[in-house]
Design a protein around this nucleic acid. Structure first.
Lengths: 159, 159
DNA sequence: GTCATACTACTCGGATAAGAACTGTCCGAGTGGGGTAGG
DNA sequence: CCTACCCCACTCGGACAGTTCTTATCCGAGTAGTATGAC
């Protein structure tokens, strides 16, 4: 799995603590964890294309959450970075085997494909059941100072 | 996910239908689905290292299942090919952030890391709950001719 | 006829290239704000 | 003092290299069976 997934998740969480109505630049988000700014920008672009973030150019520009944290699941973020395809891609090699026919869709009939897909659905279900708001609440319960620390970080950091 | 996972799963299933006590060469397993023999051999080596298959060199050599299909889970095969590490690798970037400390293991404390790991455990649980014997039984129920077809394939195929 | 021996063909095993994907970097298009000059 | 305009710094966005991982290939070490020749 791409490194960018971790960056994207942390950045989204940090954005949920930003001052409402204020955009945060990729540079500031990157400086937060000492990440390469241009590359993080690339991941944030993907999130914007997926409709999770909105982007603004120019001075006072940057990124902000496109909707409330309750409406952003971990699956949304992961899918935005990794793409929508399943990790296990059934190549339908049964079609090449004895008795295999080119006109049959083995993704629906092959037992192996079904089993792998079933496991992947369990994974997706777990991710889809957790929202950014859940994570936000948990962090704020465990570490109450984090929201303020994050806002201060955005204000003080010089990228 | 690696292409080899699909090949390995199909090959293990085919091996479960081989004549007992008889080894099947990588060449025959590859010819079954028209796969590159040398590369499939590499995957089978990984399965052998993981203790899922046993390998024999020389004439009349090849691969066979190291234990009964009831004792081989899909997770065993996937782990043998993909490696034991989680797909999502927490790089503990929180340690670089404000208030982050190098002596803390953030894989245990970071909420994001925990959530991703939780999803991955659901995936593993699903795979660990399905054995080669389950797949074998399902296929034999749906397509009773497959075991004989497979054995004939092993006997007739000229790699 | 029997046995020991050398040979040959066969198979796995690891070392070696080609290709793709991920990671990282750079510069241009567009935008908003601030400075400046005129009224 | 107020307003309109122009310039500039800032930010995202996509195009461009470096590195790692996956895919594919090849040849050598070891083995089992077989043919051969001596006894």
């Amino acid at each position: 799995m791409n490194e960018g997934v971790e960056w994207a998740l942390h950045s989204c969480l940090n954005l949920s603590w930003a001052t409402p109505g204020e955009a945060v630049t990729a540079g500031k988000l990157a400086a937060f964890y000492d990440l390469p700014a241009a590359y993080l920008n690339k991941q944030l672009q993907a999130l914007a294309r997926a409709g999770i973030l909105t982007s603004t150019s120019g001075p006072r520009g940057g990124f902000r959450l496109a909707r409330s944290p309750e409406e952003i699941t971990l699956l949304d973020v992961v899918t935005a970075i990794e793409g929508p395809e399943d990790a296990f891609k059934c190549e339908q090699i049964l079609a090449q085997g004895p008795g295999g026919r080119p006109d049959v869709d083995y993704r629906a009939h092959c037992v192996i494909s079904q089993s792998m897909r079933s496991a992947e659905l369990a994974w997706r279900r777990e991710l889809a059941g957790r929202t950014l708001a859940d994570l936000k609440a948990t962090v704020e319960r465990r570490f109450p100072h984090v929201p303020e620390t994050t806002r201060n970080g955005f204000a003080n950091v010089r990228p």
